[in-house]
Each structure stands twice: as structure tokens, then as C-alpha cells.
């Protein structure tokens, strides 16, 4: 039953990575959207019709910053696919990703 051991061993790593990237990045993305919406201000409907809310530049900036992080994460994923294909390995030895030949 060594296979079961290997499988469970791999499974929790995949689960952790999946939660971090697969749930983490979209959550950041959602925060970015929320932040953008907050930055645009709330529109109010009154007797004079619809008045646009006050803009909050910080919210807009934070929103785009969050999107930036998500894009970086996606690029990392892409780099991973491409490097594996060309016989390189993505290494996190130096914390920031580097390519090393396999």
C-alpha cells in the first residue's frame, strides 16, 4: 500500500498549493473589485436625480495594486508551464523565482 502513502503525501501538498493559489488569488481579485467599487464612490439617488459619489483615489489605487498581484501570480503559473516544457525548473530557493536547468 506504499502508493496510498505517496498519494496522501502528494495530496496535502496539492491541497495547500491549490488553496493558496487557486482560492487565494481569486480572493485577492475579488478584494480588488470591491476596492475599485469603493474607490469610485457610492452614487446617491435623491430628489435631484442621481448624484455621483465622492471618488476615493486610495480605493482605486489599492484595487489596481491587488489586480497587479493577481497578474503576477498568473505570470508565475505561465512561467512554470513554459519552463517545465523547456527542461527548466522554477526554483523558489532564493524566495523570488529563478529558472534552473533540470
Amino acid at each position: 500500500m506504499h502508493n496510498l502513502g505517496f498519494a496522501l503525501d502528494g495530496a496535502w501538498q496539492v491541497l495547500l498549493a491549490g488553496l493558496a493559489l487557486g482560492a487565494g488569488l481569486p480572493i485577492l481579485f475579488a478584494l480588488g473589485i470591491r476596492s475599485l467599487a469603493w474607490g469610485a464612490g457610492e452614487a446617491a439617488v435623491g430628489v435631484n436625480g442621481v448624484t455621483a459619489g465622492r471618488r476615493r483615489p486610495i480605493g482605486t489605487a489599492a484595487g489596481y495594486a491587488l489586480f497587479g498581484i493577481v497578474v503576477l501570480g498568473v505570470l508565475l503559473g505561465l512561467a512554470f508551464i513554459v519552463s517545465t516544457g523547456f527542461g527548466y525548473k522554477l526554483s523558489f530557493e532564493h524566495i523570488y523565482p529563478t529558472f534552473i536547468a533540470k
Binding site: Q13, A17, L21, G22, A23, G77, F80, L90
Partner: peptide, 16 residues
């Protein structure tokens, strides 16, 4: 879809 992408990439990285 992001869950799927992350799980597929992570597992092929780990040889799973």
C-alpha cells in the same frame, strides 16, 4: 476555473 488551474499546475509540479 482558478481552483482548477492551480490544482492542475501544482500537481504536475509535484508529479501527482
Amino acid at each position: 476555473q482558478s481552483g482548477a488551474a492551480a490544482v492542475i499546475l501544482a500537481s504536475s509540479h509535484l508529479g501527482f
